[in-house]
Design a protein around this nucleic acid. Structure first.
Lengths: 338, 338
DNA sequence: CAAATCGGTGGAATCGATTCCATGAAATCG
DNA sequence: CGATTTCATGGAATCGATTCCACCGATTTG
């Protein structure tokens, strides 16, 4: 039944709307009799409170928004799943929105979620046009960044240490004898893209490896760009003997290209992926990768947001990343070129 | 700025709230002068209309809900992504919710989305306790089923033909000489689980294969149950020479177990997966699988919902499925047992 | 025993935008 | 030129729940 209001319920229960409202919101100032009669009326009429009207008055929705970058990226899917479960435990409902790695779309959803008056917002910022994000930050709505941040905007955040895992990876490859490592970077507009790239550069420098600009290509964190980047690097006249890709989807694209080109991963070419995606464990050879804990990141983001909603100002959290050595990396073979 | 209302805007622009509202909603009955002044006031104050108040009065939110089964399942992630893009094209904003393969969670989100007064709802029903879904159907809120349906509830739907692809798969295995095919089924509570299983049984019967009940195990469409199921089947004294798993995540679980047990897929064991997931194409051996078009399903669901919102009653749509033969299936080897 | 306290209640104001209705000025018509 | 239509506008009612405030009968307290 649509259109059943609290007045109908009150009328049927023989009480005032005020009392009916009190019963429904668990206000203790109600008699057992009213409670019983209201509950029965609710059941009989199939009453469904209008959240719009409710939160218009009470300015609480018990709903949080989670604006992620890309649902199809398993890293964000895992993060979203963990966040949502954690939110449920705290009595919060999560509305998920997908920016699809696009600032325009991000801004559009930002508008919607703000207009829906969520109690708080967890955001993977896209970079680029930050006007809406700045508006968000200055609006006073509880909000936290997750995975990525925007430099001049001061919001609590959960990020991963984009440097240590990358450092381990480069060192691991260097120890295997690789001197030319190709790097498929994320976009410079994303903080993760920039930080991982900086870490890569710092590590290759520290290990005394070649720093040829030709060895770096920039993608957009989606599979297609990983494939294009890998192809470009592998077709260099002086092709690298190892490749690092800066996120899970670009890694998948790179793997696909290797297979198309008939390059044997782990033998002809060493490949280090990013993100501990289930699929990477069952690939053959199993992928060596830089792992970050998506679940923990999602849960932490919700906890931080919960603190912000409670009026606190939590410190930024940085989670560790680490190299997981599996079978896609091996000693460099001399004279190998495709 | 929070707390800027349309009255503030109206005051600053020197018009009434009524006129300000008309300007904002594009009502033609406004003068160029008012329009200009209101727009300037909006910009200066950073006004953000309260969607709650707006849709409380106008009962339209331009928002649809998409309640999927599991964000971490790439099939649903693809479906959600495609749906969301299609919705955007139609001027609708998608709020995503994740039932996590749980009826309780589904019902909870159903409540929330209804309370948020979305204009329509796309639902992958969980099966089990249908009370809330029945309520939804009888509430008159535009809604469509996608991927799964519930038998006695008459809502428009987009599903896949769960039978033809499965039939092809069984026949393909039969032609390769397999007589004992293990089946890792989805839950009987889901229509897809039931239909695929029925198709499997029908096909094995038609091909004259063994119909040993031991060859069937039931999972829950998540990876863990696929792994457990595969282990159980492969440890049978009279183990099957081929396996079919009824969804993508269970397929991944099965692959993992094969690797743990040292079984060579495509040689010692033929494996047919479900869903055309990117990862399955780059696995070695590449997986033979039953493909359905998640993107098309997502887009169609939104289109149907759009029609329902417009007052039409669209016919159910059934999309094709088909077998994609790759490298994980091969001729049965005599005397093979682990 | 009068006064203070308290639990339960209803009436009415409220949240912020939309929209119905009435109004007055300008434009059009016979 | 008076009558009528058009157009933009403001005032006030409205959407549905929450909550402030006042009240009343019953209990407790000095």
């Amino acid at each position: 039944m649509r259109g059943v209001t609290i007045r109908d319920v009150a009328a049927r229960a023989g009480v005032s709307p005020a009392t009916a409202s009190r019963v429904l919101s668990g206000n203790p100032a109600t008699s057992a009799l009213s409670r019983e009669r209201v509950e029965q009326a609710v059941a009989e009429l199939g009453f469904r409170p209008n959240a719009q009207a409710r939160s218009l008055r009470s300015t609480r929705t018990s709903t949080i928004g989670l604006l992620i970058s890309d649902v199809r990226n398993p890293f964000f899917a895992d993060l979203a799943h963990a966040a949502e479960q954690q939110a449920l435990e705290l009595g919060l409902i999560t509305l998920l929105a997908n920016a699809n790695e696009s600032v325009e779309q991000q801004n559009r959803y930002l508008d919607v979620l703000l207009a829906q008056r969520v109690d708080g917002l967890i955001l993977v910022p896209q970079g680029g046009d930050n006007a809406n994000v700045e508006m968000l930050a200055s609006s006073g709505l509880p909000a936290v960044f997750v995975d990525r941040v925007i430099d001049n905007i001061d919001l609590p955040s959960v990020t991963a240490d984009n440097s240590s895992g990358m450092g381990e990876a480069v060192q691991h490859l260097a120890e295997l004898g690789h001197r030319r490592i190709g790097y498929i970077s994320g976009p410079r507009s994303a903080s993760t893209g920039r930080e991982r790239f900086a870490a890569f550069q710092a590590a290759t420098l520290a290990c005394g490896l070649e720093q040829d600009p030709e060895l770096v290509v920039f993608g957009d964190f989606q599979a297609g760009s990983g494939a294009a980047g890998a192809r470009q690097l592998l077709e260099l006249s002086n092709a690298p003997s190892a490749l690092i890709a800066a996120d899970g989807l670009m890694t998948m694209g790179a793997v696909r290209v290797c297979q198309e080109l008939g390059i044997r991963i782990g033998e002809d070419l060493s490949l280090v992926g990013y993100d501990d995606i289930d699929a990477f464990a069952i690939m053959r050879p199993a992928l060596t990768l830089i792992a970050q804990d998506a679940d923990e990141m999602g849960r932490t983001a919700v906890r931080l947001l919960h603190q912000v909603i409670a009026g606190q100002k939590p410190e930024p959290v940085v989670l560790p990343t680490r190299l997981m050595v599996r079978k896609s990396t091996g000693p460099v073979k001399t004279g190998v070129n495709r």
